[in-house]
């Protein structure tokens, strides 16, 4: 009974740390990694709570699998945007972040 609570709490912690990192990071690649982890935190909460009944609830599992695949799409598109910005402007930071240290 404790296993789902342990992982769900870890999911909340991952989500919060990564969300704060997403807000404060300057480098776009770091932001993409943080966004991925925000997603993983949400997935962790969903799957942990789905593990409480026996057998586990398959609906959150299917939702999370859809989420993982959409996540890789978002990552690929964001990385393509980053590559294009870096090729055009020579910086891996968004324009409003470039003046900061």
């Amino acid at each position: 009974m404790t296993t789902p609570i342990v992982y769900a709490s870890a999911g909340v912690a991952m989500l919060c740390i990564a969300l704060f990192g997403f807000l404060t990071a300057r480098h776009v690649l770091r932001r993409i990694l943080a966004l991925n982890i925000v997603g993983s935190g949400v997935f962790m909460m969903l799957v942990a709570l789905a593990a409480r009944p026996d057998p586990p609830d398959p609906i959150p599992h299917a939702l999370v699998m859809t989420g993982i695949v959409v996540g890789v799409c978002v990552t690929a598109l964001a990385l393509a945007l980053l590559r294009r910005m870096f090729a055009d402007e020579g910086s891996a930071r968004l324009p409003e972040d470039r003046e900061f240290g």
């Binding site: 599992h61 996540g71 980053l82």
Partner: peptide, 27 residues
């Protein structure tokens, strides 16, 4: 551990594998 082997397979292959390759390539 959370009895979600389907999600585990998808995570290892897509979430970690393909995403990792994409990020390394961008890097």
């Amino acid at each position: 551990r959370l009895r979600a082997p389907d999600v585990a397979l998808a995570e290892a292959a897509i979430g970690s594998g393909v995403t990792g390759a994409l990020v390394l390539d961008a890097l």
